[in-house]
Design a protein around this nucleic acid. Sequence first.
RNA 1: GUGGCUGUAGCUCAGUUGGUUAGAGCGCCUGAUUGUGGAUCAGGAGGCCGUGGGUUCAAAUCCCAUCAGCCACCCCA
Length: 414
Amino acid sequence: MAHLKPVRGTHDLLPEDMRQHRAVIDTARKIVRLYGFEEIATPIFESTEVFHRTLGDTSDVVTKEMYSFEDRNGDFLTLRPENTAGVARCFISEGLAQKVPLKYFYAGPMFRRERPQKGRLRQFHQIGIELLGVASPAADVDVIAAGHRALRSLGIIDKTVLELNSLGDRESRNAYRDALIDYFTPHKNSLSDDGRARLQRNPLRILDSKDKADRELAAEAPVLSDYLNEGSRNFFRNVQDGLMRIGIDFKINTRLVRGLDYYGQTTFEFVTDALGAQGTVLAGGRYDGLIELMGGAPTPGVGWAAGVERLAMLIDKYKEDCPVFAIIPMGQKAADRAHMLAEELRDDGLVVDLAYAGNVSRRMKRANRIGASAALILGDEELARNVVQIRDMKTGNQSETSLDAVIVGLNQFR
RNA sequence: GUGGCUGUAGCUCAGUUGGUUAGAGCGCCUGAUUGUGGAUCAGGAGGCCGUGGGUUCAAAUCCCAUCAGCCACCCCA
């Protein structure tokens, strides 16, 4: 067992990391609650087909990034690479069609077998929201607004740009797809290997290729917005108007094509340039056909997901705001009494760290290290007089307080 | 999955054309201070030099493989 290291692409979240992590999740949960979203949790693994049928057989996530395994009874299971499919499955399983519209928030680990990089892990964490059962563009606007406000509340909205696009409805998308194939096929031999493969599988993806030749060709390619039918065009117009009405800036990016097949109509991404190649921080869109595709009643949906690790790298250092108190007993009798005192203070909701061992100097050091606001020094000598020393760790001022009135004495630190 | 860069103490990093006992700063521990933290001073602990093989009298140093991290691609949160 020498050289134990975490599995490639996974990592431990120590308290310092976890504070950042939790700040992201707690803030987002609180903000989306303002929009009526409530937290749910779906299982971390699902039947493989839940993802196969929904994400698209050609998407990278399905073709090469899934952690799949065979259960002992022969079932094929997969660690979830994202959570929208799981929520959709839950919607069907639990018969929730009766209860639309539904607004859900989730937070938890996701798994993709990619080559790790900063901001790209094999086990990572996402938060996200899904709004099910509302076909109106008002839902898109509300969902985007919730994401926007969450980023604002995290203090990073200025580091991001909202990019917006419409893929149109299925009819528009198919028409555009055909137009792209017609356009690229004569130039087939000028495309990169990758571009050629995309032409077969998903021509839309050629548009955001980074290959130089592909880009040059793509620059002249038909534009998606020209192929939107009237309904799709109006829908997109309404989303844009809605965003402008509530003061949310965005940039149209006609090349914004989501990687998962279930998206249609609105797609959006909050991107940052502060994270290198992994610039997408919160992204989503509309997926009206998904639940029907999975065998449920036709149900429209919009949502987004955000990467917790990526957000955690962008936010300011989160500071714990509740004060910590250290109790420093000296002597056996005092130690016993200190334990009681600690429990009394905890009854009152205070965070109390009890020094277990070492001389006073060591215990004071520890109190200092954990960032205690005050140290309560209780030796046998104090105990005999029924008092405790309260030392303000910031100023060094120390005063004596009756053991019966400690809580009053600590009020100044709360 | 492809290409490039990098792996030396808990952390950040030195380490000469291969040469004998591998260093520094920070952190940690002990003491100055047997009941008082931060500052200062003195001392101390801590290394399979990522791992495995090879070349050599001799490898942290050169070669090969492998693993991991980072960067770019791919893709995506």
